Structures are given as structure tokens and as C-alpha cells.
Amino acid sequence: MVALALKQAAETTVTGQQIDLENVSHQFELKGAPLPVLDNVSFSVEPGSFVSLIGPSGCGKSTLLRLLAGLDHPTDGTVKVDGESVGDPDPSRILVFQDPTLFPWRTVWDNVALGLEAQGILRSARHRVDNAVQLVGLSGFEKAYPHQLSGGMAQRVALARALVNEPRLLLLDEPLGKLDSLTRLTMQGEIVKLWQEAGLTALLVTHDVEEALFLTQRVLVFGPRPARIVADIAVDLPYPRHRGDPKLAELRREALGHLGLAATW
């Protein structure tokens, strides 16, 4: 699948990171009692791949992204990126949430620049802000404020704020979940384009089975909490994809079957 992506984007240099999870389990404390979230999860993702995670709400998918981002650490097992155990958060691994969480008093340009400003390199890297704004299609809106943006535009700002750090691993936690259906369809195409142009590794958490199949090369299906991987579905289709492709319908039926929803299709 990675070879297919490279063939389709021959001019793109793959900069993405390798991911390896080995026997990862995780739990939280809830009112003094352990709450298991992940149970012995193991998988690998090759550099430059685009992989999605689907499963029941609350099964631990977002927790897994937080482990990869370094925001939490597993109770058991190892989480490795490029062969090194994940420690603290790092600009090479960026997590994009469902809510854009833009600062309302900062312009689009200033919101995108936030990461570089925090690292103390904004003066020498201003061009990266301009490039990121252009990459997400917001040229001309640099001086706009969040209240002047649509939901889709605000999410583009959030993506630009992530991309300005030149990440090698992009973690997407339901980034399109709050958008209207038409804007969501448009943004799906934008995310694929950004992934192809940047050459990074991307992991997407979504509750939309069709979105997972349409965007990514591989779909990991999780069972109920504490989550285990119940299926690993390869989406061996070229880009751009067409929603009416019979193969997508076949894969959707397969994915819904693993989720116990085969009767709905």
C-alpha cells in the first residue's frame, strides 16, 4: 500500500515516521478504581502511510492517539516512533482535535504561527506560516479573525497550525466531526491532498466508516472497551477515489460486519 502511495505521489519525498505498538494496554483511575481502555494492542504503520482507526465510541481510539503524541504513557507495553520509545510531546508529532480551538483574539496568520512562536523560531521561519496558510487554501484570509470564518475554514486553520511545524506524524482525532456534510466532503479531499503533498504519516480517528475507507489506505477496527483490534482492512484502491466505487461498498459491508452492524447494510 505504501508503494501505491509513492507511485501516485512520485515527486513527494516521504518524511513520515514509522510507528510500532507492542502489547500496549492502558487504564485510567475512575473514582479510585481502574478503568481499562486498551487491551494488548499491537500494530505497525510504515512511513508515509495513511491509516484510520474506527470502533465504538469510548473504546480507546483517542487515547491511542494521545499515547503516540506523548500526552499520556501506556500502563503496559511499548509505543515507538522511528524505533524510539515515545516520551514527551514533540513538534514532529502533532495531534489535531475535533474542535479547532483557535484563539479568538489572534488572526489566522497569528494562530498558525503559534507553534513557531512558542519554539522561539518565528522570526527566522515566517515563510513556513505563509506556506502553511497557502497549503490549506486560506491565502487572502491571513488577517481574518476566527469569528469571521466558517467551520471548514476554522478547521483549515487548525490543520495549517499543525503543518507549520513540519510534522512527520499527523494524528487526527475526529477533525471533521462537527462540520456540515457538504463541508465535510470537501475537507476530506483536502486532507488527502495535504497528506500526499507532505509525505508524512497520518492516523485518523473517525466514527464514519465511509470516511475511513474513502481517505485511508488501511482501516484498523477496534472492539468495545477495553479495545482490541478485531480487524485490519486494506483499502487497496488508487487516489482519487470515487464514492460510488463498488469496492468501497464491499469494504463498508465488511467493516460494519466487524462492528456488529452488518444488518444495517
Rank of each mutant, 00 (worst) to 15 (best):
K247H: 11
A231K: 06
L64Q: 09
L114R: 04
T264R: 13
G55I: 06
G152W: 05
P246M: 07
K247Q: 14
L169A: 03
R106F: 14
P224V: 13
N111K: 08
P167H: 02
P226Q: 10
D90T: 12
V79S: 03
Y145H: 05
A227D: 09
L102Q: 07
L35H: 05
T13V: 15
Q8L: 12
L102P: 08
E197C: 07
K143S: 14
G83I: 00
G140Y: 08
A234K: 11
V164M: 09
Q18C: 11
I54L: 13
L135P: 04
H242G: 05
E142P: 03
P246R: 04
V37S: 08
L95H: 12
D110I: 06
D72Q: 14
E254N: 02
N165C: 13
I233W: 10
K61V: 11
E197A: 12
V209T: 04
I191R: 00
P238L: 06
L163H: 00
G87N: 12
L114E: 02
V133C: 03
R123S: 13
V51G: 12
A198L: 15
D90R: 06
V45E: 10
L200C: 10
R218T: 05
E166M: 08
G48Y: 14
H207G: 03
R243D: 01
R168D: 10
R168Q: 13
E84R: 15
V209R: 04
L220C: 06
D72W: 08
L220F: 10
P240S: 01
A154P: 03
S62A: 12
V81W: 06
S49L: 04
T63R: 08
V79D: 06
T186P: 02
L261H: 00
H26P: 05
V157D: 05
G16Q: 10
V2T: 13
D20C: 03
E254S: 06
S181F: 13
K247P: 01
I94P: 00
R156Y: 03
L256S: 00
P56A: 08
V37Y: 11
L71Q: 12
K80I: 08
I121G: 03
T13I: 15
E254L: 13
K61L: 12
R66G: 06
T13Y: 11
V79N: 06
L67F: 10
A227L: 09
G120P: 06
G16P: 04
I229P: 07
A158L: 03
E174I: 01
P34W: 01
L256V: 02
T186A: 14
G151M: 01
L71R: 03
F28G: 00
S52L: 08
F141H: 14
G152E: 08
Q27E: 15
C59V: 01
L64A: 10
L200I: 14
L159I: 14
Q17P: 00
G137D: 01
L220N: 07
A113L: 04
